[in-house]
Amino acid sequence: MTADVVATGRAAPRSGARRLLARHWYAWAMTAPVVIVTLVLVGYPLVRGIYLSLTDATEATMGRTIGMNVIPPTYQFVGLKNYADILTSPEFLGRLTWTIVWTVVCVALHVSIGLGLALLLNRPMRLRSLYRVLLVLPWAVPSFVSAFIWRYLLNGEFGVVNAMLRAAGFNGIAWLDDPFWAKVSVIACNVWLGVPFMMLAMLGGLQAIPRELYEAAEVDGATPWQRFRHITLPGLSPVSSTVVLLGTIWTFNQFPVIFLLTKGGPGGSTEILVTYAYREAFEGIRNYSGSAAWGMVILALLVVMAAVYRRALRRQGEAW
C-alpha cells in the first residue's frame, strides 16, 4: 500500500499538485514542526559553520559588542585553506587513526562482552534479576560522573587501582600520565560505561528467538557451537546491526569520557576528532574557522556512516 502512495505521489503531473496537497497536507503539517525546528536550529548553524570554515575567523577577528561599542568582524574569506591545512597536517592522520582505533576497539569490546553476558543471563538460574541489576548499574550512572569516578580510581598517587597493584607486589602505573596507558584508561572507562546497554539490547534480542528452534536443533544433534552460529547469531542480527551502529556513533562522538578523564592528554595522545575540534574552538586562542572546518570533516565521515546504516536497514526490508 505504501509503495502505491509513493508511486502516485511521484508520478503526479503538475496539474495534480492540488490533489497532492489534498492527499498529503496533514502529513506535511505533522512533520512541519520538526522540519522547521531542524532547518532553523540545525540547518542555519550548519550553513554558517560551512561559511566560517571557509574564512579565517578567530577570537581576534570575530566581531563583538563590548558595552556600546560594536567592533565589526574583520575575518576574510580564504576558500579551502582551512581544509587544506587540516588534510596536510600530521595532526589529522594521527587523530583520525586514534579515533578509528578507539571506536573499533570500544565497540568490539562492548558487543562481545555484552553478548557474552547476555548469553550467560539468558537462562533460568538463581539470582538472575540481582545479577541483571548489578550489571546494568554503570549505565545508570550519568557518564560525566563515571568519568570522574574513573579519574579518581586511576589516580597514579592514591588511586585504588594502583594501590591494589602495589599491594599485589607490582609497580603502580601512571595510568593517566603515560600516552599508552592513558589510551588504555579511556577505553576501559568507556567499555565499562557501554557494556550494560549492549547486554540489555542483546538480552532482548535473545529472548525474541523462538525456543523451538533450539529444541529442534538439539533433536537434530547440533553442537552448542552450531546452535550459536546458525540460530543465535542470525536471530540476533536485527538487534545487533542496530546497536552496533548506535554504539559506533555514540563512541565516535564520545565527548565526556575523554574530555573529563584525560582532557585529551597527555600531549594530545587520547584526543579524538570531536574533542580536538572542541579544544581548537574554545581553548587558547579560539580558532573558530579551523574548528568549523574540523567539524565539516567529521560530518563528512558521519555521512558515510549514515549511508552504510541505511544500506543495512534496506537489507532488512525497511523501504526508504
Binding site: V5, V6, G9, A27, G49, F255, Y278, G295, L302, A306
Partner: peptide, 28 residues
C-alpha cells in the same frame, strides 16, 4: 504515512541525531 518528502525527512532525522557536538558548537 508515505508522502512526498518522506525520504528526505527520514534522512534528516537520521543525520542530525548523529551530529557530534563538534559540528554545530562553533556556529551556535
Amino acid at each position: 504515512f508515505r508522502f512526498p518528502g518522506f525520504r528526505s525527512v527520514m534522512w534528516m532525522l537520521l543525520i542530525t541525531q548523529m551530529f557530534p557536538v563538534a559540528i554545530l558548537i562553533v556556529p551556535i
